[in-house]
Design a protein around this nucleic acid. Structure first.
Lengths: 135, 135
DNA sequence: CGGAATCCAGTAGGATACTG
DNA sequence: CAGTATCCTACTGGATTCCG
């Protein structure tokens, strides 16, 4: 029996090499990218209301049009965000979280709060490590 | 009051722009990289026992020496992994999870199980989206 | 307005060879 | 054994321009 920590992670069927790889890598290459989580986050703050592209762009500091577009496309593709296109003049596009999207955000609460609790310790560790310099 | 989903995420002091950014990006660029989580995972499976560099390399499928070294260095720098160097001939180096490291892994359980539950749906969504092709 | 297209710089990551 | 050192490629992400 492994440690309790990983017990639930071990439910995945083992692969040909005889161990269960974490799906975290690969599947969430998405999570690792620079903007995806921030987009989900801003949409969730809207709590059910839809947000226009320009609103998202204004609220997510530093994101470029291209990166926001790419992030939204990937989220839409995964079914985490719904895109509503209104063929008006000028055109209007609104985005909202899907059920799945908000579920994923909920699932992120664990690491997020852990990070908030441990961020300063990590930064301190890095400082110490870097000060030690050449070993 | 925001949605329940993000309530606990909102405890962070707001920044100058008036909203609380998720720390998930930036702090865990680490989490987003290709090998970090897998290294933590393999170390946790050892449950307290230390693992040698070569053991890790053998068990983490596809990782190169360089990438494993970099991942371990970063984890050590953050204080998530402890490195024990034995100046023998030939040299021996052993790695183990720190308390902090296993805490982080525990905190990852949320997304991990969510991903395992939703992976097939996501893949299906992607398939449908890609089949729709040109919109 | 909400992109798409293009160009470009920086970096993550892989292959290979060498070393204390 | 456990790395460093190089080299190289591919992808991320930024800036800019154009389009329906």
């Amino acid at each position: 029996m492994e440690s309790v920590v990983v017990a639930t992670l071990d439910q995945q069927p083992e692969d040909a090499r005889g161990f269960s790889p974490l799906p975290s890598n690969g599947i969430c290459g998405r999570l690792g990218d620079k903007w995806t989580v921030q987009v989900l986050w801003r949409l969730s703050l809207a709590s059910g209301k839809k947000l226009r592209f320009s609103a998202l762009k204004k609220e997510i500091d530093g994101v470029t049009q291209r990166m926001l577009t790419l992030a939204l496309r990937n989220l839409e593709r995964d079914g985490l965000v719904a895109r509503h296109y209104f063929p008006e003049v000028p055109p209007r596009v609104e985005y909202e979280l899907t059920e799945m999207g908000s579920g994923m955000l909920r699932a992120l609460e664990g690491i997020n709060s852990w990070l908030m609790d441990n961020l300063s310790r990590i930064e301190e560790n890095r400082r110490v490590y870097d000060d030690a310099e050449q070993r």
